[in-house]
Write a protein that binds this DNA or RNA. Structure first.
Lengths: 145, 145
DNA sequence: ATAATATAGGATATAATTGTCTTTTATTTG
DNA sequence: CAAATAAAAGACAATTATATCCTATATTAT
């Protein structure tokens, strides 16, 4: 409703990779898709995007798979994943779809949207993969169903 | 980015109808589409939905068109338009696309999303068509471009 | 009543998103 | 080096959202 399906899968996949990397495990896209309950081939495409954007790391061949460095778990924020997959229209776009909508020439909802979007932006820019993975690790949150 | 295109057009159309009803003018969907810069036939469909949901009122035949009663301008909130067109997934759906995501079995983003969505909901439920139309009337806001 | 006008409705077209399938490329292990 | 494994890449298919077109229906004014 806010993110595309691709972006939803991308976030869930990245969080799962983070969770497993905490245990030093590389994971295949087959495993990822199974564990986050997403379509395999489609998820593979999204993982490619995340890899190209240096959000996660991929290794080919046997013993290969996806992983993320310990320091990147803190560095990578949700905003980076959203930007890589959905672009930045979530920040810049007008809530009512006007091509140019700004303080000089605002749509009727401009100011009210600005507040909400600023909150959303702050949330996305301050939430790291590590933070999300730790909630999962202790069984407080879930990635499927 | 948050609403469907149909919903964006729907809100803009409803605000324009409100603006014109303040001057006792009924407006055709041709005029509406022109003034909010939207595709005519598609906009007509959306106006049908708004009419069926008793958000605006339509009159057939010559001198006909769309209008909204003075009291409805205050009564109708944005939330009603959004619900009529996009349903309530904006309130109930999980930010990461999980089928069931709630306090008992939350996704990793559940709590953070809840805050933002509550703000969005409050905004939509408290903003009336009248409020939006008056901003337009005095030239502070715009419905196209 | 008839002609004109405006919304309502149905069928269809186009575009974007989501999803699948097959082949290729890189890497590791025996 | 050969075989096996796993991601990368490209072509294709299905679904949903967006948009158009044509006809029907209701209403008004002459």
């Amino acid at each position: 409703m806010m993110f595309s399906k691709a972006c939803e899968y991308g976030i869930r996949a990245a969080v799962y990779v983070t969770l497993q990397s905490l245990e030093e495990r590389r994971v295949s896209f087959n495993e990822i898709a199974k564990e986050i309950d997403s379509p395999i081939a489609f998820t593979a495409k999204i993982l490619q995007q995340l890899t190209r954007n240096n959000i996660i790391h991929s290794v080919k061949g046997p013993t290969g798979g996806f992983e993320i460095e310990r320091e990147d778990m803190d560095m990578v924020k949700l905003s980076m994943i959203v930007k890589a997959i959905d672009g930045d229209k979530i920040y810049t776009g007008c809530g009512l779809g006007l091509k140019e909508c700004n303080a000089q020439k605002p749509c009727p909802l401009h100011d009210k949207f600005l507040d909400i979007r600023t909150d959303l932006r702050n949330m996305l820019e301050s939430t790291s993969l590590f933070e999300l993975a730790t909630g999962l690790e202790v069984g407080l949150t879930y990635l499927k169903r």
